[in-house]
Write a protein that binds this DNA or RNA. Sequence first.
DNA 1: GCGTTTGATTGTGTATACACTTAAGATGAC
DNA 2: GTCATCTTAAGTGTATACACAATCAAACGC
Lengths: 247, 247
Amino acid sequence: MTKEKPIPGAYGARSRAADTGQRVYEALRQKAIDYTLRPGERVNEVRLASELDVSRTPVRAGLNRLVSEGFLKLVPNKGFYRPAIDIETIRSLFEMRSAIELLSVRLFCERAGDDQIDALEHLATVFQRADDTLSVPQIVDEDERFHESIAHGSRNSEAARLLSDMNSRMRFLRLVALERQNCNQVTGEDHARIARAIRTRDSAQAVALMREHIDLMLNDVTEIAREAVVRIYLGAGASESGDNTFS
Amino acid sequence: MTKEKPIPGAYGARSRAADTGQRVYEALRQKAIDYTLRPGERVNEVRLASELDVSRTPVRAGLNRLVSEGFLKLVPNKGFYRPAIDIETIRSLFEMRSAIELLSVRLFCERAGDDQIDALEHLATVFQRADDTLSVPQIVDEDERFHESIAHGSRNSEAARLLSDMNSRMRFLRLVALERQNCNQVTGEDHARIARAIRTRDSAQAVALMREHIDLMLNDVTEIAREAVVRIYLGAGASESGDNTFS
DNA sequence: GCGTTTGATTGTGTATACACTTAAGATGAC
DNA sequence: GTCATCTTAAGTGTATACACAATCAAACGC
C-alpha cells in the first residue's frame, strides 16, 4: 500500500470545482439509467468516487437524491442498491406513466396556447418526416420530447417533473420495446393523430388516442422485461450513450 | 447466544450510531411537512445540525433526499430552499393526486382480494362511526389511511409511493381545507360510498365517486392557499403534531 | 448624500479521518 | 471433515477541517 496525499495544505491541483456536485449527480443518474449500475447489485461508493475523481462526499449526495427518485434503495449499514428488475415494478411504471400522460394531455387541451400547439405539431411533423433515418435511441429522444412538451404545456409542474422521472427510469425499457416492435413509423403517425386532436381541442379524443398509444407497450411488458435483462447482463445496454451508437 | 455489544451507550454524545440517519431524515421531513421550514426561506444546515445534535453530514444527506421528493430546491453555492407557496403548484398537486387516485381505485377494483375489500370497508365504517369525535388532524390521518390503502391494494408500487409523497406535501393544505369546510361527516360518507362501489367491483362507478370526492377541494384551491399562508406565518401550523417544536 | 469598493463574516461544498458494522477467511475443537 | 469462533479486511456512517463563494457593512471617493 502506497501512501498518497502527503500534503493536506496543498490544495491547488484540485481547486476547480464549479459544478462538481451537479456533474457527479448527473453522471450517477446516467449510470442508473443505462444500468451501468446493475440491478440487484450494491453500489460501491469508494470505487465510484475514484472513477469520477472526487471524494465520497458528493457521490453520497448524489446517491441520496437518487434514492428518492426511485433509482436506488438504501439499506442501513450495507449501502445503496440498484433494485432488481421485476415485472411488477415495470408494469407499475407503465401504468403510472399512462395516468400522468392522460392527465397532461387533457390539461394541455384546456390550457395550452395556440403557439404551444403549433410547436407540438411541428415536433410531430418533423418526427414523422424523419421516418426511419433515425436510430432507435434518437427515436426515444424524439418520443420523450413530444410527450414531455405536452406535460409542460399542461401547466402542471408535478406532471412535468414526474413524467420526466418516469421516462428516465423507463428509458432503457422503451429502447428495448421500440427495437422489438419496429415502432418508429407507428409512433410518428400516433403523434400526428394526437396533435390533430389537440388542435381541435377535442380533449376526449386526444385522451383516447394517447391511451391507445401508450397501452400498446403494456401488452408486451413481460417480453420487454425479459429482453431488457438479457441486454443488461450482456453489457450491450450502455451503448446508447456516447459515441458508440448502433443502428 | 449472540455476542454482547459491550458499550451501546458509552460513546455518549459522540456516536449513538443506531439509526441517526433515518431519524434525522424523518425529523427534517416532518419540519418540511408542517412548514417549520418556512416557504421561501433558506435552510441553515449548521443550525439544523445543532438542533438535532448531529453534524452537518446526516443533515445534508436528508436534505438531498428531500430535494428529489419535491420538498426542497437546491441552489448551488447558496443552499437548500423551501419553495415558496404558490397557487399553481398547489393546483398541480391536487390535480396529480387526483390522477393517481383514479388510477389506484380502478386497479384496486380489478386486482384487490376480497380480504382487502373487507379491510377497506372496515376503515370506512370505523371512520364514519367515529364521526365528529375526531380532531381535524385525526381526520386527515384517517383519510390518508383510507386512500393509501387503496393505492396499496392496487398493486402498483409507484402509485403507492407517489401518493404517499403527494399526501405528505399536501398534508398541511388538507388540514386547512378540512377545517374550513367541516368535511368530516361528508368525507366519511364519501368513503362508504366508494367502498360500496368497490365491493361490487364496479370500477367505473368507483372512479366517478372518487373523482367527485377529490375534486371538491380543487374548487377552493385559492382560498385554501390563502388560509395556509396565514397559518404558516402565524406559527399555528405546527400544533398538529402535539409536539411544540417551533423555536 | 449616494454609489462603489473592499473587508470581515457567515455558510456552503468537498475532502479526509475515524468509528463501527458486516462479511469473509483462517484457525482450532470435536 | 464439519462446525464454531476468532481474526482481518472492506466498506459504510458520521464528524471535522478547510477552501471558497456569497452577503453585509463600513469606509472611501465623488
